[in-house]
Amino acid sequence: MPPPLLEARHLRKVFSSGGEPFGAGSETVATEDFSISISAESPSFTTVAGESGSGKTTIARLLLGLMAPTSGQVLFRGSDVQGMRPTERRAYRREVQAIFQDPFEVYNPFYKVDHILTTPIRKFGLARSKGEMGEMVAKALEAVGLRPDETLGRYPHQLSGGQRQRITVARALLLQPKLIIADEPVSMVDASLRATILETLHRLYREFAISFIYITHDLTTAYQVTDNIVILYRGAVVEAGDVERVIDKPMHPYTQELVEAIPTPVPGRGWLAENEEVEMGGAGGGGVESRGCAYAPRCAHAADRCRAQTPPLYRTDAGGAAACYLYGENAVVGAREFAALLVTDGRGEC
């Protein structure tokens, strides 16, 4: 079997903030022991979900090689992305593409859409002639549902948010990537645009066999588009598995609390009335507690053991994994088995 397209092994990232105005410097563990594997052969659509500060964007940046992990490795086709040979690096830069939350910010407002789209073609020398370049651009625009004649020649501010986000997708497509890492691609737009953009991503997955890592805080859209889901809490994976199983039958107490707290778009469900007690909040930022389960202070099931030692990922009855001692009788899930959990068995269609 060839090595996976992209693999993360035990990624850990610690940020230390300079002490100056606050006395002693503090350390924040943004990512703790994160592993994932994206097959080079069968495409997959995986969500990494967590609230802001849970380490999602750090994971995206590590996977894209935009920052180095404190420990652990990111491997592209078997080679560590920190210290790759130039030819490998070129392939990595091409095959793994990114889409970010706010496409408005990325582009220079004085360049037309055409420039945004032709730059990667020139940079990677993908076209032999101007004509070929034009054809490639037109094809990529059509693939994301934009009409070239209505789109080319315009400046970014002359396009809607959804159009701009789709231009970003078209730009990523030009490089014929194998994997697109999309960090909160729809969090800034309204419900109908969300549907339009996610449909585009889903179609590319189905028709062009491109894998996706969809990074979001929104479980509802995750349910809509993905096969697998990884739930993060304060930098660490708390639960992972098939999206239907995780959402329909959450195992980790945090996931249970999350799923139960999602406001449903049906008025009169008493969402505000439930769970009236208010958290008074202790000190402490978004990082992982140094010892014990990070969720223990909020958890109704917390026992001494939970506070003493961080739980590993255990198999759950539902065929997923949860980092919780409630499943402590079950087998521990190692990095390799964890990766296998998230492999799509050609289910693609839903």
Binding site: E199, H202, T220, Q224, P265
Partner: peptide, 19 residues
Amino acid sequence: ASIPSFKSRGEFKGIPGVA
């Protein structure tokens, strides 16, 4: 109509046309 739900996977109902 475009709001997603936990009942439908892989169904997307955006509003066609340009803003």
